[in-house]
Write a protein that binds this DNA or RNA. Sequence first.
DNA 1: AATCCGGACAACCGCCGCCCA
DNA 2: ATGGGCGGCGGTTGTCCGGAT
Length: 254
Amino acid sequence: MVRAPCCEKKGLKKGPWTLEEDEILTSYINKHGHSNWRALPKDAGLLRCGKSCRLRWINYLRTDIKRGNFSNEEEQIIIKMHELLGNRWSAIAAKLPGRTDNEIKNMWHTHLKKRLLNTKNNQPHSNTKKRVSKQKIKISDSNANSNSMETTSSNCTFSSDFSSQGKNLDNSIICEDPEDSFVTMPQIDESFWSETITDDETNSMTISHELPIQEYPYNNSLENFQNPFDDDDGMGFWVDLLIRSEESTELPEF
DNA sequence: AATCCGGACAACCGCCGCCCA
DNA sequence: ATGGGCGGCGGTTGTCCGGAT
């Protein structure tokens, strides 16, 4: 074997990335690409392991990352995809352009899982409101205090994500209820969560698991949700399921 | 004002499968 | 055919921050 040994951890830095490191990584990848993650940190002059660089790039620095709160449509797609695929975050992420598996995984564990749990316990809806957190982007470095940016107008929060090199990766507007910083969510029928799956549909699910993950045209709205799979190839089920459950484009209340 | 606590999310760890020598 | 490196993935942990007390 001629390859270098894996994971030489001596002297490698861990923990939050600094703005300077982000800049180095971004400019290196923009210039040379990332064909070899293991060699990259050494070539770029970073005291990080290749894995750490890869993670930082994929989850944070990539320019095509969509940042900001998940839309209701995105949340519902995650829920439905999770019903079908389980914890296959990367497969779910492949269906949500601009979202990373890590982001979706975090979203699931911090928000969606609890909602589903509450629903399945048949707990009454405590209220009809869902908190919307203000988007606040942090750039982790020694001067972190000065790196958060947030502006608020009367009833909307406009947040800009300034990542490395001052690049604006995403601008997002989070509208809030002007009275109490909550948004009111409509209620939908409990049957939303208990779709009956027929034998035919189950078969379709089984088949779909064996197919390569494909991207479907997701245009930020389920009204624009096109099913590229139809039923011929067995991928139609979950798409149909999503569409059928989307009479309302809002999330249920808990 | 200080402290505590829980939520959110970035980052790390370990495993697995693929690919290459 | 085999063994090891590498990338990718999912689970878990660490850290920060805001709200509550």
